Computed example of a mutant assay.
Amino acid sequence: MERLPPNQASLSRGVPDAKPGTIFVLSVAGGVSLDAGPHRTILFGRNRPEVHVCIGEDDPRVSRMHGSISHRSGQWYVAVTGRLPVRFPRQRTLFAGEDPIPLAAGYTPLFVQGSSGREHLLEVYVVGDSGTRPVPRPRESTHPPRVWQLSPAEKLALIVVGQRYLLHDLHPLPLSWRQAADQLAELQPTESWTAKRVEHLVSNVRSRLSRDGVPGLTREEVGEPVGNALNDNMFRELLLSTTLVPADLDLLD
């Protein structure tokens, strides 16, 4: 195991050339790198003398020995032993006692929720088969997100139903079909806006996105009780893809 230099930049920028399978782990307190191999483990937590990577050293909500990253069966796995879960990208969380989660090649940020809303970052980078760091591409054209095609009626209905998402509510929920229909009828008095029409338009968009590979938009995927999960997942995709953006709220004025 090797200590990373004190001036080590964020692992999101890549790592030095290394053998495939080598792992780099970094926090604001420093980090380490370790070649792949059986029974190799990196410990992380608050108690600096007993862990390899210290995280949340001044925050008592972080456990002294919060978790580990171990190599087995040709892959690195994250396990949690602390009181608080570790959050992975896409809002996935891992709790103590659960099966370890494997790490994919490349960069993975891990988060531990601390005191007073603080979040402690543990950066992890697993070197892939090529063993090389990402190549800077300052002159390459930006790859745009996939913007989903919507009819004018679909877009307006979605803006109204999902306006709390566009307003950056902390815990947004879609408007009910009746609430949306009433607001749409005020915006377009000559159109035949009903709760059924709004539901039909939104459901058609959700089905179309699901057929094109967007996950979490069917009852089979989400399971019962469904609640607002299907539409919540759909609106998050529409915002992340920039199909809907906050400026669209101007249409409601």
Rank of each mutant, 00 (worst) to 15 (best):
D248E: 04
L150V: 02
Y125H: 13
E191V: 01
Q163W: 01
I101N: 06
D58A: 03
L103F: 09
V25M: 05
R139Q: 12
G114I: 08
E191G: 03
H171R: 11
Y165K: 01
R46P: 08
P5R: 15
R83G: 12
V161A: 12
R137D: 15
D182T: 10
L84E: 15
N233R: 01
A36F: 04
E237H: 10
S73K: 13
L156P: 00
E221C: 05
R146G: 02
T108Q: 07
S116R: 12
S141D: 13
S192R: 15
H171F: 08
L167Q: 14
L251K: 09
A153T: 11
V80W: 09
E224P: 00
L238Q: 03
W193K: 05
K19L: 14
R178D: 14
R133E: 12
S70V: 10
N233D: 01
Q91R: 13
L238W: 02
G14V: 02
R83D: 12
R178I: 14
D169E: 12
L244E: 04
D35W: 00
G128T: 07
L43Q: 13
P136E: 10
R236K: 13
G31K: 04
L4H: 02
F111D: 11
A229W: 07
L251C: 08
D169T: 00
I42R: 01
S10Y: 06
K19C: 10
C54V: 11
I69G: 03
K196L: 08
H66K: 10
A247D: 13
R72Q: 11
E119S: 09
E237G: 01
D169C: 09
V62R: 06
V86A: 02
T22K: 04
P144G: 07
P49I: 08
L122V: 13
E186N: 03
D58F: 00
S210D: 10
R236M: 10
V53T: 09
D17F: 00
P109K: 10
T108A: 07
E123I: 06
G97A: 04
G223R: 07
P38L: 09
D59F: 01
K196I: 05
R92I: 10
D250L: 13
Q188F: 09
H120W: 14
S33D: 03
S210E: 11
S130M: 09
I101R: 12
L173C: 00
L150M: 01
R87G: 02
S73M: 09
Y107C: 02
H168Q: 08
R139G: 04
R61P: 00
S68A: 13
R83K: 14
A105W: 08
R118T: 12
R211A: 11
H52S: 11
P49Y: 05
R219G: 11
E221L: 05
A29N: 13
H171C: 05
L170V: 10
Q91K: 11
S151P: 07
Q183P: 00
L175W: 07
H71M: 00
L156E: 02
D212L: 14
L209N: 12
R87S: 11
L209F: 09
E154K: 06
M65V: 12
I159M: 04
V198A: 02
E199Q: 15
C54T: 15
V222K: 06
A157N: 06
G162Y: 06
P145H: 07
G128L: 04
Q75S: 14
G82P: 03
